[in-house]
C-alpha cells in the first residue's frame, strides 16, 4: 500500500517538524499552536494504526480541551522570552546531562531488543475484526485493569478537588446574585406600577 506509506511519512515528518518547532519557536503562542499540530498529526498516526478510538479521544481531550486551556493561559501571560533565555548557559550542564541520560536509556531499550517494534502484530490477544475499537478497549479496561482504571479516576478526582481548594477564595467584596432568592421573588414585592401624571413626573 504505497499510499498508506506516503500518508504515514507525511504525518510523521510533520509531527517531528512541529515538535521541533514547539521547542525552537520564539513566540510562546506559536509554540502552543505547533504543539496542537503535533497532537493533530499524532491523531493521524493513530488512525493509520487502526486505533480509531484512541485517535478520537486524543483529539477530544488533548486538542479540544487541554491544549485550549494551555493556549488560554499562554495568551494571558506576558512572557518575555529574552528574560527566559538569560539563564541559558547556567542551565546548560544540567539540561545536557538529562538529555544524555534519556538518550542512552532510549538507545539501550531499543538497541537491546527489550521493546519489540512489531509488538502489535504479535500481541497475545489481538483485537478481533468484528469487535469495534471502543468495545475492545472497554473489555480490557473494565476487566483486567479495572483497579488501575479506578485508581486513575480517583487520582484525577483528588487533583481536581486540590486545584479547586487551592484557587478558591471567598471574596466578600463582590456583589453576587443568588439565583434561588431571585427566582423566589414575587413581582408584587419588587415592581411597583406607578400612575404618572403628565408633565409632573413621579
Amino acid at each position: 500500500m504505497p499510499l498508506l506509506a506516503l500518508i504515514f511519512y507525511v504525518l510523521a515528518i510533520v509531527t517531528i517538524a512541529s515538535a521541533v518547532m514547539v521547542v525552537t519557536s520564539r513566540n510562546p503562542v506559536h509554540a502552543v499552536l505547533f504543539l496542537i499540530l503535533t497532537f493533530f498529526n499524532a491523531t493521524g498516526l493513530f488512525l493509520l494504526m487502526g486505533a480509531e478510538f484512541l485517535a478520537m479521544i486524543l483529539l477530544i481531550i488533548y486538542v479540544g480541551a487541554i491544549a485550549v486551556l494551555f493556549l488560554f493561559v499562554v495568551m494571558m501571560l506576558n512572557i518575555n522570552l529574552v528574560m527566559l533565555r538569560q539563564g541559558f548557559t547556567s542551565y546548560l550542564p544540567l539540561g545536557g546531562l538529562i538529555i544524555i541520560v534519556l538518550l542512552t536509556e532510549l538507545i539501550m531499550v531499543i538497541g537491546l531488543g527489550d521493546i519489540d517494534l512489531n509488538i502489535a502484530a504479535k500481541a497475545t490477544s489481538p483485537i478481533p475484526y468484528h469487535v469495534p475499537n471502543a468495545e475492545a478497549i472497554g473489555r480490557v479496561i473494565y476487566t483486567q485493569y479495572v483497579l488501575a482504571f479506578h485508581a486513575a479516576g480517583i487520582i484525577l478526582l483528588v487533583s481536581m478537588i486540590g486545584a479547586i481548594v487551592l484557587t478558591l477564595r471567598q471574596r466578600t467584596d463582590v456583589k453576587r446574585q443568588s439565583i434561588d432568592k431571585q427566582n423566589l421573588l414575587l413581582s408584587e414585592e419588587v415592581v411597583e406600577l406607578v400612575e404618572v401624571t403628565r408633565s409632573k413626573g413621579v
Binding site: 496542537i36 480509531e52 478520537m56 485550549v68 469495534p132
Partner: peptide, 25 residues
C-alpha cells in the same frame, strides 16, 4: 460510515474552538 461517527463529531466540534480563539488573538 465509520464506527466512531459520534466521537468524530464531538472531536470536530471541540476543534471549532480554535478558529475562534486564534482569530481573537
Amino acid at each position: 460510515n465509520i464506527n466512531l461517527g459520534l466521537l468524530y463529531l464531538l472531536a470536530i466540534s471541540s476543534l471549532n474552538v480554535y478558529g475562534v480563539i486564534i482569530s481573537g488573538w
